[in-house]
Design a protein around this nucleic acid. Structure first.
Lengths: 330, 330
DNA sequence: TTGTATGCGTTATCAA
DNA sequence: TTGATAACGCATACAA
């Protein structure tokens, strides 16, 4: 593979001149520049990124730490990563990917952060559910001078790009009301505030009492069980705002078992717009999060941090809008 | 960050000695070695991978080209990538990830392969659906001396790790027969041979005539429509082997609309074990492909190629078994 | 058993 | 406007 030296010899100038000509900066005679560029093209020159990084001390790689338990193989990750990669590549950065370890290996996950830093990346993007807790990890990265961004991490104290879940639920519940639903229940775990806050706020706006059916874990099975609980309420709700698509699909299954017609008797809305939401019976209305856009936003923050841009007023964190996808379950 | 030089100064020896001591090869006095190792630990020494690679000419990175149209955000990719990453890391290799471009940018995808090669990776893993066609891409990589592996690519002429789809269908259809199903239909696109071959072979084994319901595209909507076609057959099939989970879930929806009971009247099996398969009503019996294992296998082939191992008898390609996951749809 | 010196390909310093 | 040359951190041929 062609080096600067090869181009220099081919075009009869020094290496330094080749460097200037290719970079486009500094004084280079027009004729010389053209000659050099021609040689470079001819030899199919590609800069050796390693050598460049070694010399400048600037990394052209962003490391992404994905995974941890459960989330490790989450389909929603891939779109975020794809968005990041595209935006990073446009900014002349490559993306390196690592996965966290299982739960029992917490200590090894701490070491993992060390390893990430020791690879001297230009920046680090972290998914929630990784070994190290968010705040200590962020502090460690700040101390180490490594630009970082969290993706969709609930902890407000760290720089993160997030989806506006509260707004998503607000739009969904408002939509249910606009379609004439009178008794809209919320089914979900109650320790996740953003969605629940969105629901309660909206019900207040609508002047209606909230109907909250708590569940221990946001699983399909608990969703299925919750369907019975909802159906047993008197008066019975005519709409359900589910915590997630997984929960909502469990609710769908539970309602089917009870012989309850969807959406005629009860409408159901999910959250996430997983692939499964478009493949259910009936296809599930849901709140879509633009994961590609989230990845792009994360990359943009990282690129800005790498460039040394000053943090914008209000900090680096960004909140992205969500969108209601209406399907046949409402 | 500590360099070899720092350790050398701290322990009062030369850089060369530090190198030998850390590597564990060559003659180093025991006391000296201990002193050096202690300093290294104290200073938290981490080798600078870039410098090492630049010097040795050996890359410690494998690039993964994922994506292309449609498949770009496929949830099944993430498990493969995770498996690869884990296995690569164990082999002291890092994973770099790139995504192909949309269909209209075919020419740019050709350039993409150039870019991959020009980054001088230790190896390259390619997902199907990428811009360059498999055979020319493989030849280009072979000429360039870059070890490669395709993941689940149908083209038999390239080195690839694949799932044994034929075997998966065989197991599924055999299972249906063992559960007393008499008329087992196959619903799918007929230009994909491996699954169809598995079905036809099994029906032959069972001494039954095949019932093939072709569909134009393997989509949920076409699956839904195919359900009517199946239901209209006389005699009506009592089991359906679906081309994929997406198709099978469409079939489920179509059967629900017709008021046909699943699995009492018709059993349904899918293929892929997507997340959606476990979230449907009823949960879908399906053929699981161990994508994590596929990623691991791909990494192993790549690591062997990088080491310069001779190709095993029968070539580098590997075929991985699939597994039937029985749920409530059968 | 240990040390010196060189080069990987690039960028940057400084002089010409 | 251009060219020698040093340096990034590591690995290794060669000398001691």
């Amino acid at each position: 593979m062609a080096r600067l030296k090869d181009i220099a010899e081919a075009s009869g100038v020094s290496i330094r001149t080749v460097g200037r000509a290719l970079k486009g900066a500094g004084y280079v005679h027009k004729d010389v520049r053209e000659r050099v560029l021609a040689s470079a093209k001819e030899l199919d020159y590609r800069p050796h990124r390693l050598a460049r990084s070694l010399r400048t001390g600037r990394s052209h790689e962003v490391l992404v730490l994905a995974g941890g338990i459960g989330g490790q193989r989450d389909e929603l990750h891939i779109a975020k990563i794809a968005g990041m990669e595209r935006a990073l590549r446009a900014g002349d950065m490559a993306l390196g990917l690592l996965f966290g370890l299982e739960d029992q290996a917490r200590r090894q996950n701490r070491d993992l952060l060390d390893e990430l830093i020791s690879r001297r990346p230009g920046g680090i993007a972290l998914f929630p559910g990784d070994g190290p807790q968010a705040k200590p990890a962020a502090r460690r990265l700040e101390v180490g001078g490594v630009p970082y961004i969290f993706l969709d991490h609930p902890d407000r104290d760290v720089d993160a790009v997030r989806h506006d879940r509260q707004q998503g639920v607000h739009e969904a519940v408002t939509y249910l009301a606009s379609r004439g639903r009178k008794r809209i229940a919320y089914v979900g775990v109650i320790d996740e505030r953003s969605r629940l806050d969105g629901y309660e706020r909206t019900m207040r706006e609508l002047g209606r009492p909230p109907i909250i059916v708590p569940m221990p874990k946001p699983t399909w099975e608990d969703g299925r069980k919750a369907a019975s609980a909802v159906a047993a309420l008197d008066p019975r709700p005519d709409a359900i705002m589910g915590y997630s698509d997984i929960v909502a699909l469990g609710i769908l299954a539970g309602l089917h078992e009870l012989g309850i017609k969807i959406p005629a008797e009860i409408a159901v809305i999910g959250f996430d717009d997983r692939m499964a939401a478009s493949l259910s019976f009936p296809p599930l209305t849901t709140v879509q999060q633009d994961n590609d856009a989230l990845g792009v936003a994360a990359a943009e923050v990282l690129l800005a941090k790498v460039r040394g841009d000053p943090p914008p007023a209000g900090g680096w964190s960004r909140l992205l809008p969500t969108r209601l996808i209406v399907r046949a379950s409402t």
